[in-house]
Write a protein that binds this DNA or RNA. Structure first.
Length: 691
RNA sequence: GGCGAGGUAGCUCAGUUGGUUAGAGCAGUGGAAUCAUAAUCCACGUGUCGGGGGUUCGAAUCCCUCCCUCGCUACCA
């Protein structure tokens, strides 16, 4: 295996977007597993660099700024600092936490862009885009408001209607207005650069297959990639008409910036450069990005897979084709699924979930780290439950691990004058325990190496359980009266076990491990390292400190406010609605909402390029409407003309294949899945309402 | 509608190159013990492995089909 050639590791964690606070879902997706992995590697004394930073460009930030009437800088400064601090309090051990608004990052991103531009990699395409003549700027989708063609809601955005949830193109909007000036924008031609992702598809597929073979990629990640490849990679625009961002360094394009997806991933590189500068060795970053001896692991959540397995590698390939300085590509992208909150998705707009910052105001970081690590969505979506958090903290951290530490230290304090007693003889039980330590260490190590963090933690806790069993079975409270030497051995080994557990658990609960080292009066850094943590290194006679409780239990009263606040949230009511609609029974009022009328088809043609759709004009007596119906497989257009049909006349308007549909024609499906029109008595007048 | 993932114990989740009586933690029941944060240790599971069908000596695992959840996507209206 060529695995052995790696002499150092580069780890990046997805750059959090500086438009809001970090919440627990983010932690479980990318940051905590990355941090645990990195801490483990550092404990082993390996050369590893851990890079992150804030992603500070893009339209959502400018929108937030507009809303608050401040500059985007105010927004990014706020959230960059808030998240940096929250990460620090949570124990994230980044070597560098940078931000993409730094000049260094702008320079790096422009360098990449220019390399592509000057070598003819990028395509230019002209397109029409809304332009605000008063503000003298092109309007991003989100800066457009207008009437939704589907639900007639008047404040739909250019990209999506929040009222009905449908995705829109800016040109779909009826009566579009600029969000900035309120003026009606005009369509104006603009030119954008595109990155030809499709040109790299074959190499990307090969690259992923190869890395998977070497590193064993996660199945979910491979599946996401497969589905992108299957659809075929498309050109992606790399520029936007915006003010806020990295300027396009080309004459005539001064008013455009690089699209965030293009420059944000490069933030990993610029953050590494910043780190190198801080070290006083400005070229040191190359050791991590441009050396075949470096293994690169990118921790992300599943929403980021395409950028890290396809877009970013393609960009680096393109660069490497043109330069002597060649970048390494991600060797592994261990993306997690999502963490939900009490059974539902985290949702900022609905106020569902809890921010890291708020959490840490009420609880210390280690119980959260422990709990999240034990429920990481490594294979599928998982849930954060307050009850479960409380249970794991109380039953596992406090009762199993905390109590073992406490009972041992207290015993040592009481019977051995706070000194590590001497081992004079070993019982079978003692020997068995000593034998098991390296076995546990090796199993846990192997799991961490495979980034199976949940399993590693579980195995570590098994050792804590074993520790309690050993203590129980040895009965030192009895032997202290009957067999002093046996008791001394039990306590000696129990103290050794505490050190072993403190080391093994330190990637997950670093603050507590440090506290335990203090209780054990361990200052020698060698005794805090991974290697040798399975050996009995505490010397007889070593003085330890007074015992302290290392984990406090969480009382019901502390949890209750969180449980109660859920009941009131909007999301909960959405869930209730959902379950209600599941039942098929509706009451008469609901039915009365539906207006069904008799109509006559007066025109009908097939919708071009469509298999199923017919475009009809129907006469409702009082008005004529266009309806799009999925009947093309069952009726020819000419058959339809003149037929009297039933039409739902108060249905939300919808757009299908760019055609407006203002109603629904009723049809039934027969036993062969064929649709048949519902026919009506010829004598009924047009517009008659079904009762 | 299409594609992908998931549906395993009361709860949270492991487990598929097909192989004895399907696992862990938590919760629950009973017991032991009393050094310790009323902590610990031991014992205890009739689970239709989402439903149905098939392949096989043998299926949680492979195939078909249906139902439900989630994600992406689309020409439901």
């Amino acid at each position: 295996m060529d695995k052995k050639k790696f002499t150092r590791t580069l780890v990046t964690a997805a750059l959090p977007y500086a438009n809001g606070p970090i919440h627990l879902g983010h932690l479980a997706g990318a940051y905590l597993p990355a941090d645990i992995f990195v801490r483990f590697k550092r404990l082993k004394g390996e050369d590893i660099l851990f890079i992150c930073g804030s992603d500070e460009h893009g339209v959502p930030i400018t929108i937030t700024a507009e809303k608050e009437g401040v500059s985007p800088k105010v927004i990014i400064d706020r959230y960059h600092e808030m998240n940096r601090k929250a990460f620090e309090d949570f124990g994230m051990s980044f070597d560098n936490y940078s931000r993409t608004s730094l000049p260094l990052h702008h320079k790096t991103a422009q360098e990449f862009f220019l390399k592509y531009y000057q070598n003819g990699i990028l395509k230019q395409k002209k397109e029409l885009q809304y332009y605000d003549e008063k503000a003298k700027m092109f309007l991003p989708d989100r800066y457009l408001v207008g009437t939704c063609p589907h639900c007639k809601s008047e404040d739909a955005r250019g990209d999506q209607c929040e009222n009905c949830g449908s995705y829109l193109n800016p040109t779909d909007l009826i009566n579009p207005k600029s969000k900035i000036t309120g003026e009606t924008p005009i369509l104006k031609e603009t030119t954008h650069f595109y990155f030809p992702l499709g040109n790299y598809q074959e190499r990307l597929e090969k690259y992923i297959a190869e890395k998977d073979k070497q590193e064993g990629w996660k199945e979910n990640v491979l599946n996401y990639c497969q589905s992108w490849f299957k659809e075929g990679l498309q050109d992606r625009a790399v520029t936007r008409d915006l003010d806020w961002g990295v300027k396009v360094p080309v004459e005539g394009f001064e008013n455009k910036v690089l699209y965030v997806w293009f420059e944000a991933v490069l933030g990993y590189i610029s953050s590494t450069k910043e780190w190198a500068e801080k070290q006083g060795k400005p070229e040191e970053w190359r050791k991590y990005w441009q050396s075949e001896e470096t293994k690169y692991i990118a921790f992300i959540g599943k929403d980021n897979v395409v950028f890290h397995t396809i877009v970013f590698p393609a960009m680096l390939m393109a660069w490497n084709d043109l330069s002597e300085e060649k970048y390494i590509l991600p060797d592994n992208v261990p993306a997690n699924e999502f963490l939900n909150y009490e059974g539902l998705k985290f949702s900022k707009s609905r106020g569902w979930g809890i921010d890291l910052k708020d959490f840490l105001e009420h609880f210390p970081p280690d119980p959260l780290r422990y709990y999240l690590a034990s429920i990481l969505p490594e294979n599928r979506d998982t849930d954060f439950y307050w009850r479960d958090f409380q249970a794991k903290n109380n039953n596992e951290l406090a009762d199993i691990f905390g109590n073992f530490v406490n009972r041992t230290l207290t015993f040592t304090n009481k019977h051995f004058n706070s000194q590590v007693p001497e081992i004079k003889k070993l019982s079978e039980l003692d020997e068995e325990l000593i034998k098991q330590l390296p076995e546990f260490k090796n199993r846990i190590e192997a799991l961490y190496e495979k980034i199976k963090i949940k399993d590693a933690l579980n195995e570590t806790m098994n050792l804590a359980r074993l520790a309690n069993k050993y203590f129980n079975d040895s009965q030192p409270w009895k032997t202290i009266k009957e067999d002093y030497d046996a008791c001394a051995t039990t306590i000696n080994l129990s103290l050794q076990l505490i050190r072993t557990l403190a080391v093994l658990l330190s990637p997950v609960i670093p603050f507590t491990s440090e506290k335990i080292f203090k209780l054990l009066n361990i200052e020698d850094e060698d005794l805090k390292k991974w290697d040798g943590c399975d050996e009995t290194k505490l010397k007889a006679g070593h003085k330890i400190n007074q015992p302290e409780i290392i984990f406090t239990k969480i009382d019901d009263k502390v949890i209750e406010p969180y449980l109660k606040s859920q009941e009131k949230t909007e999301v909960q009511s959405v869930k209730n609605q959902k379950t209600e609609t599941k039942s098929n029974v509706i009451d008469i009022d609901e039915f009365k909402k539906v207006e069904i009328r008799v109509a006559k088809v007066i025109e009908c043609e097939a919708v071009p390029k469509s298999k199923k759709l017919l475009k009809l004009k129907v006469d409702l007596g009082f008005e004529q409407r266009q309806v799009i119906a999925g009947l093309a497989e069952f009726y020819k257009p000419e058959e339809m003309i003149g037929k009297k049909v039933l039409v739902v006349s108060n249905l939300k308007e919808a757009k299908l294949m760019n055609e407006i549909s203002q109603g629904m024609i009723l049809a039934v499906e027969d036993e062969n899945n064929q649709l048949k029109l519902v026919t009506v008595d010829e004598n009924l007048p047009l517009g008659s309402l079904l009762r």
